[in-house]
Nucleic acid binder design. Structure first.
Ligand SMILES: [Mg+2]
Length: 396
DNA sequence: TAGCTCGTAAACATGA
DNA sequence: CTCATGTTTACGAGCT
């Protein structure tokens, strides 16, 4: 079934210039994103595809290289979704049989990467099991994206329809982190970290050699990453994990505190169901009952908050799409979405995978990580009661 | 200016 | 020997 949620025509939001600076910035309240993620996770459905204006943004079903060699990416006029022929790959194929462990992740964000095809059919094409985010063809600001050869970090998570193959706005630390966190075992050999990165950020497929060196360099140098048991079967490599002690800081790095404001005043507390909190050390968490001023909460945030608060039929899906977008382009996009945006989501009703409990939670965390938000919210849904999360020093 | 984070390059060391 | 995996140093660019 497909739900259709139509955004209120609210216009003129725009709200300042969100992220424009360096790496991923987080213009949306983390709390909000967190809730979104949790919400999505609680509904634990498998997303298949995300489209914006008919343009495939994500294929969670792994499409791998849908042929891209002569990629003429340097022609991306910033946003203007060209009228390129939609070449969505069969997508029915099965991934490389290399049996990467993370393949088991089918349930969560498959491929956080966008395929470069400028399809632009004006209507909501809803294929089975997919998420479609339809949006008005917004007027692409003349962001003149210089085709400059030197790869620049793809500043500020741009609005949805952006070309792939640009250097992601995430640091290697983040990329590695995401890769590891997205893995079922929360551990990966360096090779698979490479694979994850390439898959999710095609830019690296043809990126000048050296990035792998950077990855390894980062792994060993960064205290956040630890080497553990050696991976059997695979050469001599070891499995890399994220040090739970540094997890928070790592996450923080990918998401500047920015707002500290409350999620959203509207619709009273958002009491998401699932309360599976993770006992994250959560030390010295300055944020708590605090509420710094800074009321420049984006309009979109309010809307999302409402959706969270008023769970309606398509809420979950809507949020799922929003989260995916946030993950991919940075929370800023949520505020950049054009006024009258439709989010049509159709999901796969056959989610009876019935994984053991952890599954959904993993999904939630993966979402959070990818969105650059710290999981294990210290503040439970409780209306006013303080977190009181009896932290478990020694994680699980 | 000083300090810190990042990205790169590169020299080495090991083990397959 | 070659390749993959790790460790380390060194440097320059940016940002605070
Ligand atoms: Mg390390």
């Amino acid at each position: 079934m497909a739900f259709l949620v139509q955004m209120a025509p609210m216009r003129g939001e725009r709200g300042g210039s969100p992220a424009r600076g360096a790496r991923a910035s987080l213009p949306l309240p983390r709390r909000l994103i967190r809730q979104i993620a949790r919400h999505v996770a609680s509904s634990g459905r498998s997303l298949r595809r995300l489209e914006v204006s008919g343009r495939v943004i994500d294929n969670f079903d792994d499409i791998e290289d849908a042929s891209d060699d002569s990629d003429m990416e340097q022609s991306q006029p910033a946003v203007a979704c060209g009228g390129n022929a939609g070449n969505l790959p069969p997508a029915d194929h099965d991934d490389e049989l290399t049996s990467l462990s993370w393949l088991q992740d089918r349930n969560l964000l498959r491929g956080i990467n966008l395929t470069k095809n400028g399809v632009d059919m004006e209507d909501t094409k809803m294929i089975d099991n997919q998420i479609i985010v339809k949006r008005e063809t917004k007027t692409p600001p003349p962001v003149a994206r210089v085709p400059s050869p030197p790869r620049t970090p793809c500043k500020a998570p741009p609005s949805p329809p952006v070309n792939t193959h640009t250097k992601p706005p995430y640091s290697f630390s983040c990329l590695i982190f995401m890769a590891i966190e997205a893995a079922p075992a929360r551990a990966l050999p360096v090779k698979e970290i490479y694979a994850w990165i390439v898959r999710h950020f095609p830019y690296f497929r043809h990126a000048p050699q050296g990035w792998k060196n950077s990855v390894r360099h980062n792994l060993s140098l960064n205290k956040c990453f630890h080497k553990v048991a050696a991976a059997p079967g695979l050469g001599k490599g070891s499995l890399w994990t994220v040090d739970p002690q540094h997890r928070a800081s790592l996450l923080q790095k990918s998401s500047p505190q920015a707002f500290g404001r409350q999620p959203i005043p509207a619709a009273g507390e958002v009491e998401m169901s699932s309360g599976g909190e993770a006992a994250e050390p959560e030390r010295a968490s300055p944020e708590r009952g605090e509420r710094p001023e800074r009321g420049e909460r984006p309009a979109r945030a309010a809307l999302l908050a409402r959706r969270l608060a008023e769970p309606e039929p398509g809420a979950d899906e809507y949020l799922a799409a929003a989260t995916v977008l946030a993950m991919k382009y940075g929370p800023a996009v949520l505020d950049q979405l054009p006024p009258a945006a439709h989010l049509v989501i159709s999901r796969c009703a056959r989610d009876e995978h019935s994984y053991s409990g952890g599954e959904e939670r993993r999904t939630a965390e993966a979402l959070l990580n990818l969105a650059g938000v710290q999981p294990a919210p210290p503040a439970p849904p409780a209306p006013h009661a303080p977190p009181a999360t009896h932290a478990q020093p020694a994680h699980s």
